[in-house]
Design a protein around this nucleic acid. Structure first.
Length: 996
RNA sequence: GGGCGCUUAGCUCAGCGGUAGAGCACUUCCUUGACAUGGAAGGGGUCAGAGGUUCAAUCCCUCUAGCGCCCACCA
């Protein structure tokens, strides 16, 4: 005897173990050797990661696809794995060192630190994988990969070396986005623009001196968001100030130390006379040219812009154009400090005014953080009388996406990928639809980015990651090799050939690893995490080995991911896949949206509105939920607010709703192009759906609905059974089609409707008299067998969405009837090819309408639920009579009728029931409120009349009749006739009521 | 400044050229032998606004308003 409800918590683990034991998710199963492959590579979550709603959505959708195709008989490989996530992971471990008050990574040294990270990974890096398993993700877990695995690392090295030899990877000294917190370069994509606007105001014209304390406070609050106007004095040919000043505006006063020119627009009448003249840089004293450059926008600031090539991307370009006029890169940054002159004036080398006074001034900004230096420069400028005014100014300030620190453009040596060259095949592949985006409109975003792509900065000044395979020799040569051994060998041989080393020296060196390493130091940088991710579709399949997996599963079938990583990941996989495999990495890219909180806000820890998928699955108490949410909120007032909001939103915490309900919710809400807003009530609704399926199965069990050997759905006779098999067929077709087109919500809804609204609400209800009416017979046996069969269809159809409850039910049902082996997860997918029996459809449809109509009349007119009613069929046609005879018991039971009669005229005082062409009557005389019935009829009649008016208006339109397709016109006529006949019947009844 | 998307029932969202749908919430009724995590019935929508195309527009086009996201180097 089955339990009354499905207990997800008790079952999920057991079911997962069965799949595992069965090897159900293994790719390349022997029984599928001849099957077509279907492959998805998982977007590898960070090893540091914790399952969030985005993962839940992403993996549910992938799992639906994998389970569907697996049931359809394909050889499915869902390739799992995790990403080493350079910055994120290094951060976690560094923080851990700090918390435990252990020496920091610098003190620890590179080797020990990296060891430490590996230890951390071994200990707690697998959490995310366990969490994915909880979701039911049917990955081939035996093939799990990690981006820093030996194999994948080899792939990375090989790719680096080859691209370098092809000139597609190079080292260059350029401005990069420097993250001062992590002390590393980052790529353009890791920079986010944040709008800043300050409030501080000051003007020299007011006469008040600059209040240093107020300035300090304002800057502490809003370090950015101000525009500062500086006066740069114009000098004549002899270096004498002419008395004229050129005013420049800047948001970054501290960079003025690195100014090397001022640019004005060539056509700007205000400044044309100054072009070619010089100005003196205050504080520093350096003379700089006023250059003409169209970059300068007369509308912006003062129209004259200071040029600081080493600290601004635009200025860098301007500097290049005007190098001859003295615009050069003057680096004021130091890698160790954010801004630091470190007491040496090396960078002023050759400058005109490096006198003692200057040294004193500069010493006052030396070694300070950028924002402190900024303040000091402002004050110095004010003291010199060169600060004209300060205004609040709204502008975008670049921040590191992980550190949230203000990014500093900084001139350094870094490694770059020539993305522009690699982008061309990636663009062509999508233009030619060799890879298609779903929804299609993301292609535009993809094109836009790739068409304007910049060189990709791939070196990171971190320790956790793939170290760049480049070795430097004392003679200036570099050796780019896949392994240390080959690099040293080549370096030594080359050294000998060049005469830099004697053969004997080379031999001695090669025997001493320490000296070797010291002589040919390896590039200390590691590669951007996304560099290895870009290889994921083929590195996980064994490349650079020519494995059979690579042969079989590449290109993969589809990639499922969020729009936020189209640039980071999708585009780069396209580039690398095409370059190294000469074939796209995936045929389709399905892009899904974001999961938001109930109000539509983006979930974030700092907002305290995140929802842990496992809390929905397993349930969580209010207190635990609050504790989790306020954990990372430092501000007490804010934490209290989050707690109060949470208490209001989830007064009782969250009940355990199970994985299946969460998954079904995510699928049902995954309409293309729209974000998913979390709705607990909706998830509860789907938990109820699982219960419904459970209870339908329980009903089957209680009514002897056991699977029958050799049950042939095509041989079924009873209209009721033929009807539901036809409907099942339609549902299977709809669901399959929707899944294959990535319309997950349509697929989910189609299953939902079939199971609940058709099978449970009608088929099982209509079958009750047969099952429970007492008479054994072929019809009962057939109905029992059909129900058992349809339930199997239901389990299969629903399995991709709700794998646990369906696998459990399938197993339970396997205990009776013909034995079956294996697991539901391996299929088969149900048939969708039963003939639709129109006659059965009409018959069942009529019964459904009749019962609904009777119920409706009863309810609206207020017939007491227990009233014993007779239904009279008026002038019944022979076919109506036959159907009514056949379904008498059912009608009685479902519509609560005690007697069925036939008559030529409706009994006095009866209420009409109009079903298609048939008229029935409920003789209610005394029991009913006549006035209520009159108004019900009036309402019905009015509704029909309105309908007719609409149809008539169309039919009266000659253009409509002339131009609309015939079947549309015919349909309108039919509708009109049907309405007229209903009106006639109801009006007749209405007039009879009037006589009472 | 470019690009993309959204605006449909109280809420959250489907639909998308030919009779407006779902879940939740709401109202009324029902503890009948699958299921109260249930059943039955019902109320509720000028499909943001204005034009246009069409025999026909919630759906296609244009504009307007509001909201959101992405990209962009503007002092």
């Amino acid at each position: 005897m089955m339990e009354k409800t499905f207990e997800a918590a008790a079952v999920e683990g057991r079911i997962a173990a069965r799949w595992e034991q069965e090897g159900a998710f293994r790719a390349g199963r022997a029984d599928r050797a001849d099957a077509a492959p279907f492959c998805i590579v998982i977007p590898p979550p960070n090893v540091t990661g914790n399952l969030h709603m985005g993962h839940a959505l992403n993996n549910t959708l992938q799992d639906i696809l994998c389970r569907y195709w697996r049931m359809k008989g394909r050889d499915v490989l869902w390739q799992p794995g995790t990403d080493h996530a350079g910055i994120a992971t290094q951060m976690v471990v560094e923080r851990q060192l700090m918390e435990r008050q252990e020496p920091d990574r610098r003190a620890m040294g590179r080797e020990k630190f990296v060891e430490r990270v590996w230890a951390w990974k071994a200990e707690s890096g697998g959490a995310i994988v366990a969490q994915l398993k909880r979701l039911g993700a049917s990955c081939d877990w035996s093939r799990e990969r990690f981006t820093l695995d030996a194999g994948l690392s080899r792939a990375v090295a090989k790719v680096f070396v080859q691209l370098h030899r092809e000139g597609l990877i190079y080292k260059a000294k350029r401005l990069v986005n420097w993250d001062p917190t992590f002390q590393t370069a980052i790529s353009d994509l890791e920079v986010v623009q944040v709008e800043c606007k300050g409030t501080f105001k000051w003007s020299r014209g007011d006469g008040a001196p600059l209040d240093e304390t107020a300035l300090g406070k304002a800057l502490a609050k809003d370090p950015n968001g101000h525009l500062y106007y500086f006066d740069y004095p114009v000098v004549d040919g002899r270096g004498e100030e002419t008395g004229e000043v050129l005013t420049v505006a800047t948001t970054r006063p501290e960079t003025m130390l690195g100014d090397s020119a001022v640019a004005v627009h060539p056509d700007d009448p205000r400044y044309r006379h100054l072009i070619g003249h010089k100005v003196r840089l205050p504080l520093v004293g350096r003379l700089m040219a006023v250059v003409a450059d169209e970059y300068s926008d007369p509308e912006m600031g003062t129209g004259a812009v200071k040029i600081t090539p080493a600290h601004d991307f635009d200025d860098f370009e301007v500097g290049r154009r005007h190098e001859a006029e003295g615009a050069r890169q003057i680096n004021i940054l130091d890698a160790e400090a954010n801004i630091s002159l470190k007491g040496n004036l090396a960078f002023f080398e050759g400058l005109e005014a490096a006198d003692h006074e200057l040294a004193r001034l500069l010493a006052s900004v030396d070694g300070f953080d950028r924002f402190e230096a900024r303040k000091r420069i402002i004050v110095l400028m004010a003291l010199e009388g060169r600060l004209q005014k300060i205004e609040p100014h709204q502008h975008m300030v670049p921040h590191g996406d992980r550190s949230n620190a203000v990014i500093e453009p900084w001139l350094t040596d870094q490694w770059y990928v020539d993305a522009k060259t690699l982008a061309q095949p990636a663009l062509a592949a999508v233009r030619e639809s060799r890879t298609r985006f779903v929804p299609r409109n993301w292609e535009k975003t993809y094109f836009e980015w790739l068409e304007n792509i910049q060189p990709w900065t791939i070196s990171r000044q971190l320790w956790w990651g793939h170290q760049i395979p480049v070795w430097y020799a004392p003679w200036g040569e570099i050796y780019v090799e896949e392994t240390e051994e080959t690099a040293y060998a080549r370096a030594l041989a080359d050294g000998v050939r060049r005469g830099a080393l004697s053969a004997r020296e080379a031999e001695r060196l090669s025997a001493e690893p320490t000296r070797l390493a010291a002589t040919f130091p390896r590039d200390p940088d590691v590669l951007d995490t996304w560099f290895s991710s870009a290889l994921w579709p083929f590195s996980t399949l064994g490349w650079p080995e020519a494995t059979k997996e690579l042969e079989r599963y590449y290109p993969t079938s589809v990639l499922v991911t969020g729009f936020d990583i189209i640039f980071f990941w999708v585009a780069r996989m396209m580039m690398m896949g095409l370059h190294f495999q000469h074939e796209v990495p995936f045929r389709d890219v399905y892009i899904h949206a974001l999961v938001r909180d109930g109000k539509g806000a983006k979930m974030s820890k700092s907002k305290g509105n995140v929802m842990d998928p496992l809390d929905i699955i397993d349930g969580v108490t209010l207190d635990a939920l609050i504790a989790k949410r306020i954990e990372s909120i430092a501000n007490k007032a804010e934490a209290a607010k989050v707690a109060a909001d949470t208490r209001r939103e989830f007064p009782k915490g969250i009940p355990a709703l199970g994985t299946d309900a969460l998954r079904f919710f995510l699928a049902a809400m995954a309409a293309q192009g729209r974000d998913v807003k979390l709705s607990l009530s909706r998830i509860e609704g789907y938990r109820n759906f699982a219960t419904k399926v459970w209870n339908a199965s329980r009903f089957a069990e209680m009514n002897g609905c056991v699977r029958v050997v050799g049950f042939d759905p095509d041989a079924v006779r009873a209209p009721l059974n033929r009807w539901i098999l036809g409907e099942a067929s339609k549902a299977v077709a709809e669901t399959s089609e929707a899944i294959e087109a990535f319309r997950f919500n349509d697929a989910a809804n189609s299953v939902y409707r079939f199971v609940w609204s058709l099978f449970c609400d009608w088929h099982l209800e209509l079958a009750k008299p047969v099952l429970q009416g007492g008479a054994e017979g072929p019809e009962r046996a057939e109905t029992q067998a059909t129900i058992a069969y349809v339930l199997d269809v239901v389990y299969a159809l629903l399995h991709p969405f709700m794998p646990f409850v369906t696998e459990e039910l399938w197993t339970i049902k396997g205990e009776d009837g013909p034995p079956r082996a294996g697991v539901l997860a391996l299929g088969p997918w149900p048939r969708a090819d039963f003939a639709i029996d129109r006659a059965a459809e009409a018959e069942i449809g009529w019964i459904i309408e009749l019962v609904s109509e009777i119920r409706s009349v009863r309810s609206e007119v207020g017939v007491p639920a227990g009233a014993q009613l007779t239904l009279t069929l008026v002038q019944a046609s022979s076919s109506v009579a036959r159907i009514v005879e056949a379904w008498g018991d059912t009608i009685k039971r479902l519509a609560r009728i005690v007697r069925l009669e036939f008559a030529e005229t409706p009994p006095a005082g009866s209420l009409p029931i109009v079903v298609r062409d048939a008229l029935a009557a409920l003789p209610l005389g005394g029991i009913v409120d006549i006035e209520a019935e009159k108004s019900r009829l009036d309402k019905e009649i009015a509704r029909e009349r309105q309908e007719i008016a609409k149809v008539d208006a169309k039919l009266a339109n000659p253009d409509f009749v002339a131009r609309a397709p015939e079947e549309i016109i015919a349909e309108h006529h039919e509708r009109r006739e049907a309405s007229l006949s209903r009106i006639a019947k109801m009006e007749a009844a209405r007039s009879r009521l009037d006589q009472i």
